[in-house]
């Protein structure tokens, strides 16, 4: 389990990283923490000609409040987000979700944007992005564009990022007054990719539920005036819309079961903690 050969660009600025992507003809991979990509490299599942290391790009290593969102630079690590002082108050959903994300040791190195780029359907950060209706900032030598989570996340480990683009930042919207949040998941072991993860946002008469691990990408749905009476029916419909697949650890049916049952749990919890 050793990686194949590749040329390595140790970028010192965003511009250098973008230039490297642009010159590589489509087979370059960005990495910062490498917590997903390096494992795939070692398994020889991924085979880029060029690796572009942005872990030293200090201008991408930041967390900053931009309007009503937290903007997270491409090189910012998960542990930096976890220790961001405003997390519990301003981003309660992330505050609840991040402890489920990998482990102490992988959060030390893994980045938020790396997780979004990898776009594992069971991963917590893409689910929170979808649920909170956050956005990503993509930049290439051709220019910059901002995509909503829904436009960015396309499918199984597949995003709208073009080969020459770098996710320079992700933006997670802050809690608004009156909103309540809840997150839970079932993973077989602590830190594993979730079999199913659910995230709920409740605000006034609007309820939003995001689900990871069932469909090919994290998927969220809104309801207005969702009452306890029709909650089960709505969750069942949503579960069936998401579908799900069998794998060696869990059936599609079980995943739908979790949407129905944990969905109810987090929706009730999110409603209860609206403030």
């Amino acid at each position: 389990m050793k990686p194949r050969k590749f040329d390595l660009v140790r970028a010192e600025s965003t511009a250098e990283a973008l230039a490297a992507l642009s010159e590589s003809g489509g087979n370059a991979k960005i990495f910062a923490g490498g917590q997903s990509l390096m494992a795939m490299m070692n398994l020889r599942l991924a085979d880029p000609d060029v690796m572009v290391d942005i872990s030293q790009v200090t201008e991408l290593s930041y967390l900053k409040e931009v309007g009503d969102k937290l903007e997270i630079g491409a090189a910012a690590t998960q542990v930096e987000l976890l220790s961001w002082p405003g997390l519990a108050e301003k981003l309660p959903l992330l505050h609840q979700a991040i402890p489920h994300l990998g482990h102490f040791q992988t959060r030390n190195r893994g980045t938020i944007c790396g997780s979004l780029a990898h776009s594992d359907p069971s991963s917590e950060l893409p689910l929170c992005l979808a649920t909170l209706e956050g956005e990503v900032v993509l930049r290439s030598v051709r220019g910059e564009r901002v995509l909503s989570a829904a436009d960015f996340q396309l499918g199984m480990m597949t995003t709208a990022r073009e080969d020459d683009e770098l996710i320079v930042a992700a933006r997670y919207p802050f809690k608004k007054p009156g909103e309540g949040f809840a997150f839970t998941e079932v993973a077989q072991r602590r830190g594993d990719f979730a079999i199913t993860a659910v995230a709920a946002v409740a605000s006034g008469d609007v309820t939003r539920l995001g689900v990871g691990g069932v469909a090919d990408k994290p998927t969220a749905k809104n309801w207005t005036n969702l009452s306890d009476d029709n909650l089960d029916e709505e969750l069942n419909a949503f579960a069936w819309e998401l579908g799900g697949s069998d794998d060696i650890h869990a059936t599609a049916k079980y995943r739908r079961e979790l949407v129905r049952r944990l969905g109810r749990r987090v929706i009730e919890e999110a409603k209860a903690c609206r403030s």
């Binding site: 079999i195 069942n236 419909a237 069936w240 650890h249 049916k253 079980y254 079961e257």
Partner: peptide, 25 residues
């Protein structure tokens, strides 16, 4: 005893999809 297996033992059959979905499927 994966949770998925145990859930099957507890819950058995699941509720069917709503009509509109079974067609759309």
């Amino acid at each position: 005893l994966f949770p998925s297996r145990v859930s099957e033992l507890i819950h058995g059959d699941e509720p069917p999809p709503p009509e509109r979905l079974s067609q759309a499927a």
